[in-house]
Every structure is written in structure tokens, then in C-alpha cells.
Design a protein around this nucleic acid. Structure first.
Lengths: 146, 146
DNA sequence: TATGAAAATTATAGAAC
DNA sequence: GTTCTATAATTTTCATA
């Protein structure tokens, strides 16, 4: 993981469809060398996968909310319970008064309410505190350049 | 945007490196038809970009935190101020007592503290309330299948 | 690790149905 | 939308330094 690898990661985050020839040129390497470095980054798990960014509003995720989930018991083994709700796009165990923080995307606020109801049904959950997003400034990948 | 388009989006989210032949086979289309549909999805902006998922811990983002930002004034035009901090990977205007919610990735908690200090320096910010993530259950893209 | 080139695969565009 | 065709471009492998 030198500065060239970080530059490759940054370029691929911008656009993963570009050719290895173009990638190599951008970082001062031949196409073959760029290919080999990217192959190793994938092999090592630094690059987890190549994916597409989909406009959430188009696929029924126009409403975004963050939900603090309060609980009365240890939530460390409830990952599958949260993962079972497809509207939940992130779930984290947090330090603080609440114990789980989830990010939810639904088409409407009515569906958000339904997700809250289903979160409430998870074992150990004693309450939810939802914060609705009015406007997203930006969402971007972690910067490898820093 | 029919069910085939949604299936294509789901498949591409899983792995955007697969061939159009394989994609088409997965959704019951010829390679040419799959290619044309994906081209239109990109053209319409449903697919915003093709990118790689990078392991945050490897590129200096091992510490994840959500920060509620309190303010004394209208924060609607502060997007650039938050975007100027590379450790901030998301920033949202929210409904509720705080006015901005940001997601931050840093290498250490010391660097998180430094980011909080720089957030505090943004015009109108009157306070921050950071919640550190102890464990991430999952982070996944919005499901086009729902 | 990098390079340069060969070989295999895929993308891309178009014609006919 | 499918199938077929054809070319360009790219991926992937490999010999070599």
C-alpha cells in the first residue's frame, strides 16, 4: 500500500469502468503493472468489490432516516435481525445511550413507520428514535488519498 | 424500470465486473438486450457510476463515528464547508433538534477529535455530539428488488 | 515488481428478423 | 426483443528484464 496504490484506489472509486491502460497512465505505470496492482488489491481484500451506485429515489428509497435503537439487552448478536429488513442499509453497534444505529431508506414516510414497527419487534429493542433527513449534502467513499 | 431492470441493478450491485452475456443470462435476456438496458440505465442516471468498495480500515478510516451538529443559524448553504473535510463521508440536513448529521471516518480517535474541532469552526455551528461506532453489522446498497 | 506483446474474451454497433 | 455479424477495445496471461 504505497502512494501509487492509493492513487489507483481513488481513480477506481471515481470510475471503475476505465481501462487499465488509462489507469496506468494516470499513475505513471504500464497497463500490465496497473492490472497486476489492482489484481493484488482485490486479492488482499482492499478492494472488496466492484459495484454500481444506484439512485436511491428511483428504486424506492426516496426517504432517508437514521434510527437510534434503544435496548434492554445485549444487541451484539442481532445482526441478522436487522439485516432481514431490506430497507435497512446500515446497522452499527454504538457507544452511548442507544445501542444500535441504523440507516433506513424507504419510498414513503408511511413505509418508514412500518420499518420502525418491525425494528421494535426485534428481541431486546425497547424503543426507537428516528431522525428524518431533509436534504443530503453528499455521500462519498472514504478517501484513500489522505 | 420494470422488474428486469431491477434485477439487472441488483446483479450489478453484487458484481459490476461480470460480462453482459452473464448478466443477460441471469435475467433471461440476450447479451445485446442486457447491454442496451444497462446503457439506458446509465443514460437516465439510475446508475450514477461504477465504483469500487474499499476497505475503510486499510486507507485510514478504521474509526467510524456519527456526529450530530447543533447550530444557531440556517445550515442550508454549508455543504461545501463540510465537504472540505475529507474525513466526512456523509453530510445530511436533518429534521430535529440538531440540524446536520455527518458520518466521519478517521484512523484514530485523536484524529476524530481533530475533525470535531474543525466542524466546530464552521460558521453557525454551536456544538457537536459524536457517537462512536463499536462494530458495524453491515453496510449495503439500497435494494432495487423491494 | 515492471514492461511489452500475444492470446482470449468482451464491448459495441449494426443489420435482419 | 433476438440473433448474427463484424470490428474495436480490453482483459488476461506470459516471457523477459
Amino acid at each position: 500500500m504505497d502512494h501509487i496504490d492509493r492513487a489507483l484506489l481513488a481513480k477506481l472509486q471515481e470510475d471503475a469502468t476505465q481501462s487499465y491502460a488509462g489507469l496506468g497512465q494516470a499513475v505513471g505505470l504500464s497497463a500490465g503493472a496497473a492490472h497486476e496492482r489492482v489484481r493484488k488489491l482485490r486479492e488482499r481484500g482492499v478492494i472488496r468489490r466492484t459495484t454500481v451506485e444506484v439512485d436511491p429515489a428511483v428504486v424506492g428509497g426516496g426517504v432517508l432516516a437514521f434510527v437510534m435503537v434503544d435496548s434492554t439487552s445485549w444487541m451484539g448478536d442481532t445482526a441478522e435481525d436487522f439485516a432481514a429488513l431490506p430497507e435497512i442499509v446500515e446497522a452499527h453497534i454504538i457507544a452511548g445511550s442507544a445501542s444500535v444505529l441504523v440507516k433506513v431508506r424507504t419510498a414513503t414516510t408511511e413505509l418508514l413507520q412500518d420499518v420502525l414497527r418491525r425494528i421494535y419487534a426485534i428481541d431486546g429493542v425497547s424503543g426507537t428514535q428516528a431522525t428524518v433527513v431533509l436534504e443530503t449534502f453528499f455521500e462519498r467513499p472514504v478517501s484513500p488519498q489522505a
